[in-house]
Amino acid sequence: MFDSGLGGLSIWQAVTRALPDWPVTYLADQAYCPYGPRSQVEIAARTLAICRYLADQGASLIVIACNTATSAGVDHVRAALSIPVVGVEPAIKPAAAASRSGRISVLATEAMLKSRRFESLVRRHAGDVDVLPRPGVGWVEKVEAGDLTSPDTRRLISEVVTPLLSENVDHIVLGCTHYPFLAPLIREMAGDGIVLDDPAEAIARRVVTLINGKTPSATAGAPYRFLTTSGDPHPMAAVLPALIGHRYAVESRPLP
């Protein structure tokens, strides 16, 4: 499993709850984080390189736990690798289907909102529902730092969420895997009348389906490995307790 950084841990939590006996390796591409401002070509190349690395490490299934990386690179990865590859996409389809007001918002990175895949999702699944795309500028960096509740984080979220309250939006799609870690603040500002759509549980169900009938490795206890492409693993190790509630050792794996 990999993400541009630590956001994919929201997917990691759902997958490890669904498959407690399976060992999972999580790679955070913190040397290149955030992906949002980067070009689609660069993100696609990086996604393929990381997935090749994980396959070479013995992965039997890869989860691209990043909406931006999925939009840019999942097709290239699936064409290059023979193992199952699960991507993550904004939950536009269920949000649009459940919307009563006919207006939903998608919060995501700039790269995701500018991608052809996002345009395709809206065209195929939104129907007559109005979709209001909004970039969460600076949000990824706040999650990477484990800064989930500070006044500055609150300000960044309020700048995006508060204006939506006058737009008759009844669903907010969390279109970046970092954003569920900011959901408590988003919920506080949005109120109970707006549904937050997070695809993590759906991704976990998909993973379970793909490995149905297979057995985990003989190693007991479902060992979890955490890797970062940053040269210094200590910042990631320091933030893990704030995001997933546990301390784990982190290994540095700089990739070309």
Rank of each mutant, 00 (worst) to 15 (best):
A222N: 13
P216N: 14
D3Y: 04
G231I: 07
L174Y: 02
N168P: 02
G193C: 09
P20S: 13
N212H: 15
Y224G: 05
L156W: 13
A44E: 08
V208W: 05
A14L: 09
N212Y: 14
P184L: 02
E110A: 06
R123E: 12
V173D: 03
Q30I: 02
P241H: 06
A111E: 03
R78Y: 02
A97W: 01
G73E: 13
T228W: 07
T149W: 00
A111Y: 04
S101E: 09
P84E: 10
M189L: 15
L6D: 01
L148H: 00
V173P: 08
L48I: 09
R155L: 13
P233V: 14
L107I: 14
S230P: 12
A238P: 07
L27R: 08
V195E: 14
L164D: 09
P34Q: 11
L54H: 09
G213P: 14
D152Q: 13
L148C: 06
D130P: 03
L165A: 03
L113F: 14
P94E: 07
W22R: 13
G136Y: 10
H234V: 15
N67R: 08
G127Q: 15
H125F: 11
R78S: 00
V195N: 10
G175C: 13
P184A: 13
D152H: 15
D75A: 15
S4D: 00
V122H: 07
P254G: 01
L196G: 05
S217Y: 05
V239Q: 00
Q13M: 10
C51G: 01
A126V: 06
L6H: 04
D232F: 08
S101D: 04
V173A: 08
G221Y: 13
G58H: 03
A72D: 14
R134D: 06
I211T: 05
V207G: 11
R205P: 06
V208T: 15
D170E: 04
V24W: 08
L81H: 11
P199W: 06
V169W: 08
A72C: 15
T229W: 01
R225Y: 12
V86N: 11
M189C: 02
L196P: 01
A238H: 01
Q40A: 14
T153Y: 05
A28P: 06
I11D: 03
A49M: 06
P20R: 11
I43Y: 07
P216D: 10
I50S: 00
E42D: 09
T228C: 13
